[in-house]
Amino acid sequence: MLLELAVGDAYGAGFEFAEAEFVQQYNDLTAYRQHPRHRLKPGSYTDDTQMSMAIAETLISHEPWTPQVLAERFVRTFKRDPREGYAKRFYAFLQQVEDGETFLAQIGNTSEKSGAAMRVSPVGVLPTVEQVLHSAKLQAAITHNTELGINAACAAALMSHYFIYQLGKKRDLGQFLESHVSGNWNTPWQGEVGTLGWMCVQAAVTAVMRNDSMCGILQNCIAFTGDVDTVGAIALAAASCSVEVTQDLPPHLIEGLENGSYGRDYLMQLDRKLISLVSKNS
């Protein structure tokens, strides 16, 4: 899950809000691309992956699922490996705060953007819909304590949960989400994807439902244009858990993903630990 999430994030980072012509020319999965305006090195993941790692590590550690613990994880995960890709104000905020207590005391938590949704896919390993919704809401409220922000996070978490526990056919994913979370999740997304969380999740659901391979899903996510690294991260995290999706990500994208201290190998280790949680819960 995390490896595929990171590939979607890193590949999408080369196209985030790029011109449509650039996307059309280079969205062929042959390589990670240098963004025409950003400095991020091709193959590097962004905040989508780093914050998902913080969520995954909290689940694996069996620490209490509280705002204090999660905020501490967010700060620690950033401090050990500061990186570009965060929104400028949030990046500056993370540089400034020293611990979870300060984070909670100073954070503004009224955003409707995609931050709570982009990081929540690992929560899908929890064994019941009720637990997934509870945990997704709690982590979302730390930074995105709005109806739209929380709903987007709940839908993203349920995407991976739906496939992990084989709760239905891929074609019924949108209907399943609408039965548990307010939103038009079964309505196909069209056009550029904005920065609001529900937009990114709806686009990710559309890409997963209309394609049967990881390659097809990833290209579809990027072809929307807009906030496509987040769309790709959410979609590939969920689709990696589906028995109906051909797991055909190109080897050069997997091998080309950054592999420093918290890169590809570390993500694969976290994935194995997340899978062990599923086997215990199922």
Rank of each mutant, 00 (worst) to 15 (best):
Q202I: 03
A238R: 09
M199P: 00
M53S: 04
T58P: 01
A105D: 02
S240C: 07
L40N: 08
L29W: 13
P67H: 06
V231F: 08
C215G: 00
G43S: 02
C215I: 01
L138K: 09
L5R: 08
V69Q: 11
D212G: 15
A117E: 05
G232T: 10
A207M: 04
G263E: 09
K79D: 13
A140E: 09
I60P: 06
Q68L: 15
G197H: 08
I60M: 09
N259Q: 01
E19C: 05
L173H: 00
Q131R: 14
G263V: 03
F176V: 02
V208E: 10
D81E: 14
Y165D: 03
K273R: 15
S179D: 07
M1C: 05
E112Q: 05
R264W: 14
I60G: 07
I275D: 10
E57T: 07
I217G: 10
M159C: 13
T187I: 10
H161T: 04
G232E: 13
P250V: 10
C200A: 15
A105N: 08
V129M: 11
V245D: 11
S52V: 01
D81A: 15
E72L: 10
Q106F: 03
S44C: 06
K41D: 03
F17D: 13
Q131E: 15
K113T: 07
R33F: 04
V208W: 05
G197Q: 10
G263C: 09
Y266P: 00
V7L: 06
L249T: 02
F17T: 04
Q269N: 03
G14S: 03
R89S: 02
I254C: 01
D248L: 04
I254P: 01
S121P: 03
F90P: 00
P122V: 10
G115T: 12
V245N: 08
